[in-house]
Amino acid sequence: MMGWQHTALNLSVFAPLAGLGVWAGQDQVVLAVGAGYLIGTLYVTPDLDLPLNDAARRWGPLRFIWVPYHRLSRHRGMSHTYVLGPLIRLLYLAVLMWPLVALFRPEIDTGRAAQVLAGYLASQWLHLLADGYWPVGRRPRRTLAKRTSAP
């Protein structure tokens, strides 16, 4: 899928679920999960392993921080796994943000942080499902076009 298609899919799946959550009176949960989901959909996606992608462009002048990540990552390699891919991206960001965290020492509500993490992981996993990666077993099949284009 193209980046814009992943974004459209993720947003179209989340919007009705968020509406149900708000309708059920879970506004704070929807905000926390939604924040993680939007961050994972728009800014910290499995496709950051590509030099040119929508998520990197959204970082604007800060997109340079993802250059080492995409240079060290093979597209659809480790970045397209269900556990290690998302965790590597989060650890990568954590290392970069550590000076700010150390400076400001924010108080973190672990319950809300878990909800944000759940939203982030949901966005990552939907991306992987859309690319044909299943949690266990099956890898995406190569298309006929890819097989016939090989030398």
Rank of each mutant, 00 (worst) to 15 (best):
M1D: 12
M2C: 11
G3Q: 01
H6P: 08
A8L: 12
L11T: 12
P16W: 06
L17D: 12
G19N: 11
L20S: 11
A24F: 15
A24Q: 11
L31I: 14
A32D: 08
V33M: 07
A35C: 08
D49R: 03
A55Y: 03
W59G: 07
P61R: 08
P61D: 12
R63M: 05
R63E: 13
R63Y: 00
I65T: 13
V67M: 08
Y69R: 03
R74Y: 04
M78Q: 15
S79E: 15
H80Y: 02
H80V: 02
V83C: 02
P86D: 01
L87P: 00
L87C: 04
L90C: 05
L90K: 01
L91T: 13
L93A: 09
L93T: 03
V95L: 10
L96A: 04
V101D: 07
L103I: 03
P106L: 05
E107M: 13
T110R: 11
G111H: 15
A113E: 01
L117M: 11
A118Y: 06
A118E: 02
G119C: 00
A122G: 01
Q124N: 10
Q124P: 01
Q124R: 05
L129F: 06
W134H: 12
V136H: 08
R141I: 02
L144D: 12
K146M: 05
